[in-house]
Design a binder for these strands. Structure first.
Length: 488
RNA sequence: GGGAGUGUAGCUCAGUAGGUAGAGCAACGCACUUUUAAUGCGUAGGUCCUGGGUUCGAAUCCCAGCACUCUCACCA
């Protein structure tokens, strides 16, 4: 933990330099800086052995080598780094300012481009070519190891982002993935929509919601746990292809795969079914891999994941047999297996016990992308039962590296069955705060087109595609306990 | 909630059979006009997470607490 006395000592030193900068007539907090070119752009356009090339860049001083009458700076901007050379003989008037520069300061550099004798592309700052843009009053983290303290990295992500370039790269990849999803769906005629985050009934999933209150209406509201029921209302309304990329909120535990607020893309396509959604999912994920320039083989923790399709599609009951040895119809064997696995099955519904056994024995074995298809219908109140065998629902979950990445159904559009499913809450589950959404049943009574629906966890997708094994590495500001006064 | 681990300088980390601490980087000073984690010499910097206990003496051992990490449990 930081020592406030020493911190302020370093801060005072820098504050003193700030005063000296101001005394030179320079605003230590700069202002508009026009015609900035990115470091990568300068690198790309530089031509060897051609005189007279100039450049104008801005960024943060991440390395500084003071050789006396010559200073080399590594300047980092959003695209990368470029070396800036400051020479006393080239900028005698601004030299006092140059000597006041600290690691972490933000500057602009304008001058001739050239290469040093070691071959490093350098902006040789001309007189008046040094622009002070902002003072850094804190000491930056160690220049080679960066910021390593996990807690501090999340709490001060603004430092983490520039002290650890791989962090910046990961969030750039996240941005690219989100925009790829958006482009991919938009190109196929899907309409991007936004539905309520504050809902009077938290439906569309089974999870504990966050509760809030609207003063003017004196109304209890829930932060949504899923947008599903609203998006399907839009199918009723004639929006035949819709998607939403936005946050869901679930008031449950935090771990490597769960943050209380997380981002989902949900997609609904009228006249499709879950097979259509499987194809779409596979294409969409592969498009994202291509967009971030990744190989289809991705290192994830200790494992290698091969994303190259076609992905395995296996029935729930087949996988149950494969990994637990149990036949889905042999409930005695399943319950025996459950007890062997230390699952408390007493009073638990058969289907729930079966699913517990499935989760325990199967899921962690699904490393390469695997569609688990045809779930027991009783586990899927929003999915359409299979015509061929109504005991099963037309649903898939996509598992990668043992983690649920996507969930999809052929949507249930029969209001009578939907009503019954809502009514008969599954035994063996904890009581849920989900109330009956009668208006949703009414919407179905107007007629919802048969449709495929899909949800993909964006955070987990980014984790898998960037090799981040904890969700907090793909969320800029993950939820943390606030620091108490004494730990500040 | 259970178990395990971690907490030492601004940062990254060492360390001691119980005898109040060290390196590198950063900082400050000096030197240096082609460095690449610049280099060399010097200086300064610490409530060793917090509170108790044991002890002549605790950063080290014990207890409690706080924070973080891992793990198990919980979790459509």
């Amino acid at each position: 933990m930081s020592n406030p006395v020493d911190t302020s000592k370093f801060e005072q030193q820098r504050q003193e330099k700030l005063t000296q900068i101001a005394a030179l007539g320079t605003d230590p907090y700069g202002s508009r800086f026009e015609d900035v070119e990115s470091a990568s752009s300068v690198r790309a356009r530089y031509q060897e052995n051609t005189e007279g090339q100039r450049a104008r860049c801005a960024g943060r001083i991440v390395l500084l080598r003071d050789i006396g009458k010559l200073i080399f700076i590594t300047l980092r901007d959003r695209t990368g780094a470029i070396q800036v050379g400051l020479s006393k003989s080239m900028m005698p008037n601004q030299w006092p300012l140059a000597k006041l520069l600290d690691l972490g300061d933000l500057i602009g550099a304008t001058g001739q481009l050239g290469k040093t004798k070691t071959g490093e592309l350098t902006i040789w700052v001309e007189e008046s070519g040094l622009t002070f843009l902002s003072k850094c009053l804190f000491q930056p983290p160690e220049k080679f190891h960066g910021l390593a303290d996990v807690d501090q990295r999340y709490r001060q992500r603004y430092v983490d982002l520039w002290a650890n370039p791989e962090v910046m790269e990961r969030f750039k990849a996240r941005s690219e993935i989100v925009s790829t999803v958006r482009r991919f769906l938009t190109a196929r005629g899907f309409l991007e929509v936004e539905t309520p985050m504050m809902q009077t009934i938290a439906g569309g999933a089974a999870a504990r919601p966050f509760i809030t209150h609207h003063n003017a209406l004196d109304l209890e509201l829930y932060l949504r746990i899923a947008p599903e029921l609203f998006l399907k209302r839009l199918l009723v309304g004639g929006m035949e292809r819709v998607f939403e990329i936005n946050r869901n909120f679930r008031n449950e535990g935090l771990d490597r795969q769960h943050n209380p607020e997380f981002t989902m893309v949900e997609v609904y396509q009228a006249y499709g079914n879950y097979h259509v959604m499987m194809d779409l999912t596979e294409e969409l994920v592969c498009a994202c891999i291509e967009a971030i320039g990744s190989d289809t083989k991705i290192q994830f923790g200790e494992r290698q994941i091969e994303f190259k399709g076609p992905w395995r599609r296996a029935k729930y009951v087949e996988l149950l047999k494969e990994f637990s040895g149990c036949d889905v119809d042999d409930i005695q064997a399943i319950r025996a297996k459950a007890r062997e696995l230390n699952i408390q099955d007493a009073g638990m519904d058969d289907a729930v016990v079966t699913n517990e056994v499935f989760e325990t024995t199967v899921e962690h074995n699904l490393i390469d992308p695997t569609f688990v298809i045809d779930y027991p219908a009783i586990l899927c109140p929003l999915a359409r039962p299979s015509k061929a065998d109504p005991r099963y629902a037309e649903r898939f979950e996509l598992f990668v590296s043992g983690m649920e990445l996507a969930n999809a159904y052929t949507e249930l559009n029969d209001p009578a069955i939907q009503y019954e499913n809502f009514r008969h809450q599954l035994r063996g589950q904890d009581e849920s705060l989900t109330k009956m959404d009668i208006d949703y049943v009414d919407a179905l009574k107007y007629g919802m087109p048969p449709a495929g629906g899909l949800g993909i966890g964006i955070d987990r997708l980014v984790m898998l595609l960037t090799g981040a094994t904890t969700i907090r590495d793909v969320i800029l500001f993950p939820l943390l306990k606030p620091l108490s006064a004494e730990n500040k």
